[in-house]
């Protein structure tokens, strides 16, 4: 297969970026998208050029490090798939693809397709944990959690923090990420103690980082590699409303 790429190249955060055309030759349909880029980069290195920078780590869709826009869709056209798990058999010989970094005020482009997602870390630091000392680990069966709640908490906890939700949202909102991180706590007994402070602090931090608000279009859910549902956002809004009415802190 031969694939024509139009890739965003930007040397540093402050440098002026631009699109550069590349041709990926001899692409095997069994290659992952990132392996295809590895091949392009090998050639660039041989020619003494700067390889295309992109993030990746596990390459098996579980760490959340990889991610960029493939022709206007975060992580590319396959639902529930990170770009490291996207395979070239998905594309046709001779196709033209545009590769762009996530774009948001809160995600500065560091180099080419790599963006700074530390804003997510700061949202977690604002309250995505429990700080109360609960003593030693209780017996597994002593703290009862309903099946529905535990399933939903687990589904929310599946978020790998890749940033695709922000990238896909027309408002560059991190509502899906933030709400998943709030939900995994709000649904479980361990999350109850700081429940109200948590939602207010995390939403505050989300706003300070410069993310937008949710217009309920659900583009985030559609591109999310872990298919986190936007019912999490409804839960976050509910938690926030409750904090507004009942918080005594």
């Amino acid at each position: 297969m031969r694939i024509f790429l139009k890739v965003w190249r930007q040397a540093s955060p402050d440098a002026q970026g631009r699109f550069v055309d590349y041709t990926a030759e001899d692409v095997s349909p069994d290659m992952s998208f990132l392996e295809m880029l590895d091949v392009v980069n090998e050639r660039l290195i041989m020619q003494g050029e700067d390889p295309i920078a992109f993030d990746s780590d596990c390459r098996e869709g579980i760490c959340g490090t990889c991610g960029f826009m493939v022709s206007g869709i975060a992580h590319g056209p396959d639902p529930g798939t990170t770009v490291c798990q996207l395979h070239m058999r998905r594309f046709k010989d001779g196709m033209r693809l545009t590769l762009e970094p996530w774009r948001a005020r809160a995600f500065q482009v560091l180099k080419d397709l790599v963006v700074d997602r530390s804003a997510f870390d700061r949202i977690i630091q604002a309250g995505g944990y429990t700080s109360v000392n609960v003593g030693g680990a209780p017996d597994g069966n002593a703290v009862l959690v309903g099946k529905t709640a535990s399933d939903k908490a687990m589904d929310s906890a599946a978020c790998i923090g890749c940033g695709a939700c922000v990238a896909a949202c027309k408002n560059a909102s991190a509502a899906l990420f933030t709400s998943a991180k709030i939900s995994q706590m709000a649904l479980l007994p361990q999350g109850q103690v700081e429940r109200f402070q948590r939602v207010v602090k995390m939403v505050d931090r989300h706003d300070e980082e410069g993310f937008g608000s949710c217009s309920n279009e659900g583009e985030c859910e559609a591109v999310c590699p872990k298919e986190i549902p936007i019912t999490n956002i409804a839960r976050m809004n509910r938690e926030y409303f409750r904090a507004l009415l009942f918080s005594r802190d």
């Binding site: 699109f19 206007g72 774009r103 948001a104 005020r105 027309k170 410069g210 279009e217 559609a222």
Partner: peptide
Amino acid sequence: NLAARPEAYDKKAYAGHTSRK
């Protein structure tokens, strides 16, 4: 919300799947 994405995408497509856009 406009200010949250100062630099627009060169190419942006409808995500399909479960999107309600």
